[in-house]
Design a protein around this nucleic acid. Sequence first.
DNA 1: GAATCGATTCAGTCAGTTTTGAACTTTCAG
DNA 2: CTGAAAGTTCAAAACTGACTGAATCGATTC
Lengths: 180, 180
Amino acid sequence: MSRSRLQESRNLFVRRWGEMSAYWGITRTMAEIHALLFISNQPLSTDDIMTALAISRGNASMNLRSLVDWGLIERVHERGQRREFFRAIPNVWHMFETITRQRQRREVEPILETIRRCRDLVSDESARRGESAAEIRAYRERLDDMLAVLTAIGKIVDLMLRLGPNGLRRLNATLLRLVP
Amino acid sequence: MSRSRLQESRNLFVRRWGEMSAYWGITRTMAEIHALLFISNQPLSTDDIMTALAISRGNASMNLRSLVDWGLIERVHERGQRREFFRAIPNVWHMFETITRQRQRREVEPILETIRRCRDLVSDESARRGESAAEIRAYRERLDDMLAVLTAIGKIVDLMLRLGPNGLRRLNATLLRLVP
DNA sequence: GAATCGATTCAGTCAGTTTTGAACTTTCAG
DNA sequence: CTGAAAGTTCAAAACTGACTGAATCGATTC
């Protein structure tokens, strides 16, 4: 009875975490594997995972590799066992930090780079003459706005990560008093 | 000449913004339309957009509706014109705020809800007896960790949004002195 | 060194998503 | 009221990216 409740609860969690995958920028199966490992006490083998999620060996293998690459899970070699096991990083904050830093690097940096390039393309000399001078100025202003906000967000995110959960809790408490 | 540079720059921006779409949780075309409107001085008509992005009328219509629903663009009725025009919300911070709040509501809230439900499913009574008591305790602990971190992040995000860009800039400056 | 067990890879398949385009609706001018 | 211009909807087609499964590789045991 308690067994089945636990089972039900775990299934629910895995399914929902899978649905959240897009939010974290990973694929559904990847998220499900991660969820499964996260809520398991012991490391699980590839076969455990294949069975639990009803996926093929190849699929499991590829997604496990990705998760290791992302730094969200790690391989565990039980001594005297040929097959390998996997375990999720148990520290939730660390997990969040990992995901955030990777996305910042993979997804935000490139666009910052592009916006700068876009601005350079229409910088000074090209704006000097012509009826489009005002248009160019307006355009560049928008790019700068965008750049400013994205940069500010990047900084605050970085700060947040460096503060860690405790610093964050304290900061939050302090600020809530200031900004009610 | 300056014309073509501007054009090139705009195209680059639209394309890259489109590639970023997944990061913001919207579809590629939606992001491209948004980018196009964002960097245009004047409101654009559906036909302008169809031409610029080489998409069908239906596609444009659907995505424009979504963008309006998201609150990222707005319809503009030029007086004496039957056709409608669209314009992006020019305030970048506001745009960011809109996206963040929506995603918080659409994607984070549901998973918080689910985690709570998962915890309730295995609460007290079901854990009372049986060899799985320790297992259940460990499981519940993980859920609580996850809940704690997600809640903390939610709070800090909310705070960030309430502080706005100026408050954020000040906060950032202050904290950078404290946490070098 | 052959056999076995398990992990990895990747070409082909498939499911889910996006886009199209034609039918339909709405709005307005004459 | 009629016709034309614009907007919307949705079933079907096209596309994209994830998944499978068979071939391959590598490690371990006998």
